[in-house]
Amino acid sequence: MRLDLLAVLNAERAARRATIVVTEVATGAQRLVRPADAAKDPLRDVLAERFLSGKSGIAEVGGARYFLNVHLPPPRLVITGAVHISQALAPMARIAGYDVVIVDPRTAFASPERFPDVAVLAEWPDRALPKLSLDPATAFVALTHDPKIDEPALAAALAAGCFYIGALGSKKTHAKRLERLRARGVADAALARIHAPIGLAIGAASPPEIAVSILAEITLRLRRGPEARL
């Protein structure tokens, strides 16, 4: 691979933009295709299909073999609450391949010392979340226990179609939360998408164990879809 092509590829990935690197197997000739350029490319049909499926692989077109390496943005994890569980969940999620962002307006919690190498926005969700543009490639986790912070963010995550939405709190706490979200006008079908109590039931006790249970539940939704049961 040419260094200039590699540099462009890395820049596109850092900006969370999709690309496909096309390599002609016989010659090693390579090019980088962005979604906007795909329609002009000789391989446009197969490129369009690969941008949708995200699947890398060999394609045979006109007697030539091409390797298409599809680079879609990695899944992202947005957390409200720069709390103890987040201190374990953020590095675990990074290792699992997520871009991690923590939102907490309480500056004493949202300090760089507590969260080295993680993007922390010390702002209220109504200011922070529009900048993040939540999407179906995002998992959202509410961990503050503070309705003023968690609930506007939960409503935004539901509206954006985040592939996983979880909220910390007991069944009783969650029942009260649902009442308040209903009062905000969130539909029951949407509320049913919130995972609460959060995390798979593995008997997690300590904050790092709870982080494991949350990351496992996020993985289940990412890999098996919204309906899968264990």
Binding site: L3, L6, A7, N10, P74, P91, I95, G97, P116, D117
Partner: peptide, 16 residues
Amino acid sequence: MDQAATEQDVLAAAER
């Protein structure tokens, strides 16, 4: 901090 060996890191390392 340890670098997780995600594909992102591998390609970034190749460039670096």
